[in-house]
Design a protein around this nucleic acid. Structure first.
Length: 104
DNA sequence: CAACACAAAGTAG
DNA sequence: CTACTTTGTGTTG
C-alpha cells in the first residue's frame, strides 16, 4: 500500500499538523530517489523561503518516516545535517550513498 | 519565553 | 580567507 499524496494529507490533517508542516512533508515525499534537497530549497518550494529552520523541526516530527524520505533533505553546504529517525545521521549517510545521492 | 534536523550576513583575526 | 557570533523564521514545549 503506497501512501498517496491525498492519503498523506488526510493523515497529517487528522494528526492536527499545521499547514506549514503538511506542506513540508508533502514536498519531502515527492523528492525523487537518488536526489537530495536542501532545507532551504524545500522551504522555498512550500512558500516559506526563510523558514528552513522550521522545516527541520517539521521533519523531526515526521509521523510517516518510512514513507517520507526525510533523509534526502540535507544542509545547503552539502553536509547531511541531523537525523532524528532510528539509525541517526550515520544511517542517513549510508542510505544516501546507496542511492547515489551523495558522492562519498 | 526558549529551543530547534538551518542559513546568511556581520565581526574579528 | 577562515572562525565565531548574531539574526531570521515557524512550530513546539
Amino acid at each position: 500500500m503506497v501512501l498517496t499524496r491525498d492519503r498523506a494529507l488526510e493523515i497529517l490533517k487528522k494528526k492536527g499538523f499545521t499547514d506549514f508542516q503538511i506542506k513540508v512533508l508533502l514536498a519531502t515525499m515527492r523528492i525523487p530517489k537518488g536526489e537530495t534537497v536542501t532545507y532551504k530549497e524545500l522551504a522555498k518550494m512550500i512558500g516559506y523561503p526563510k523558514a528552513y529552520r522550521a522545516v527541520g523541526t517539521a521533519l523531526s516530527i515526521n509521523p510517516l518516516a518510512p514513507q517520507i524520505p526525510c533523509h534526502r533533505v540535507i544542509k545547503s553546504d552539502g553536509s547531511l545535517g541531523n537525523y532524528s529517525a532510528p539509525g541517526g545521521t550515520r544511517l542517513k549517510r549510508k542510505m544516501l550513498m546507496a542511492e547515489g545521492a551523495i558522492k562519498k
